[in-house]
Amino acid sequence: MALRQADGGRDGLRRDETGQLLIYQVKWSVNGREKNPVSWLEQVVRDEEDSLRRLAAEGVRQT
């Protein structure tokens, strides 16, 4: 899947051994120089809330 493009909250997909669909989200920093990487990641995840809620409504249980 393409990086840095609208992907609906999915950066990677695969099925596990039971047939469940696994969705991966990759988070990365353009410059890698955040003063507080934990706060940075927390905000990035908060910004994804709408996509995460949509995926949950579609039946996704873990990303």
Results as ranks from 00 to 15, higher is better:
33 R>W: 09
34 E>S: 14
10 R>I: 07
40 W>E: 09
36 N>K: 10
14 R>K: 12
40 W>Q: 10
47 D>P: 01
7 D>Y: 00
39 S>Q: 12
61 R>L: 13
13 L>M: 06
59 G>S: 10
36 N>V: 08
16 D>L: 02
7 D>S: 15
13 L>F: 00
61 R>G: 15
59 G>K: 03
26 V>N: 05
59 G>D: 12
20 Q>R: 06
48 E>M: 08
58 E>I: 09
62 Q>A: 04
43 Q>A: 03
4 R>Y: 00
27 K>V: 01
46 R>V: 11
36 N>A: 10
14 R>N: 10
52 L>H: 06
11 D>Q: 00
42 E>C: 15
22 L>H: 03
63 T>I: 13
34 E>Q: 08
39 S>D: 12
18 T>I: 09
48 E>F: 11
22 L>G: 03
42 E>S: 11
46 R>F: 09
2 A>E: 09
14 R>Q: 10
43 Q>Y: 03
38 V>K: 06
7 D>V: 07
33 R>S: 13
16 D>V: 10
20 Q>W: 09
19 G>T: 05
47 D>F: 13
22 L>I: 06
37 P>D: 07
24 Y>E: 12
42 E>R: 15
36 N>R: 14
9 G>M: 03
60 V>C: 04
5 Q>N: 10
8 G>N: 12
19 G>N: 02
2 A>N: 06
10 R>L: 00
9 G>N: 06
9 G>T: 04
41 L>N: 02
24 Y>A: 09
6 A>F: 14
31 N>F: 09
10 R>Y: 01
54 R>T: 14
55 L>Y: 03
12 G>A: 13
38 V>I: 09
6 A>K: 13
43 Q>P: 02
4 R>C: 07
14 R>G: 05
31 N>W: 11
22 L>Q: 15
4 R>F: 07
52 L>D: 04
61 R>I: 13
9 G>H: 04
33 R>C: 08
41 L>I: 07
30 V>T: 12
7 D>A: 13
5 Q>D: 09
53 R>C: 12
26 V>D: 04
32 G>Q: 09
5 Q>H: 13
27 K>R: 12
33 R>T: 13
4 R>Q: 11
27 K>C: 01
38 V>E: 10
18 T>Q: 13
15 R>M: 00
37 P>H: 11
30 V>C: 03
5 Q>M: 05
55 L>H: 03
23 I>A: 03
39 S>C: 09
44 V>I: 12
53 R>Y: 04
3 L>D: 04
27 K>E: 08
35 K>Y: 12
28 W>N: 14
8 G>A: 08
55 L>T: 00
44 V>W: 08
21 L>H: 00
22 L>W: 03
20 Q>N: 11
48 E>H: 10
24 Y>P: 00
62 Q>E: 08
6 A>I: 10
39 S>N: 11
45 V>E: 04
27 K>D: 04
45 V>Y: 05
34 E>W: 04
48 E>A: 05
43 Q>H: 11
38 V>G: 09
12 G>T: 00
42 E>V: 07
51 S>M: 08
25 Q>K: 14
63 T>G: 01
53 R>V: 13
18 T>A: 05
53 R>N: 08
23 I>N: 02
45 V>A: 07
22 L>Y: 05
61 R>Y: 08
25 Q>S: 03
3 L>N: 06
30 V>L: 06
38 V>A: 06
55 L>N: 01
41 L>R: 09
11 D>K: 01
25 Q>I: 15
44 V>P: 01
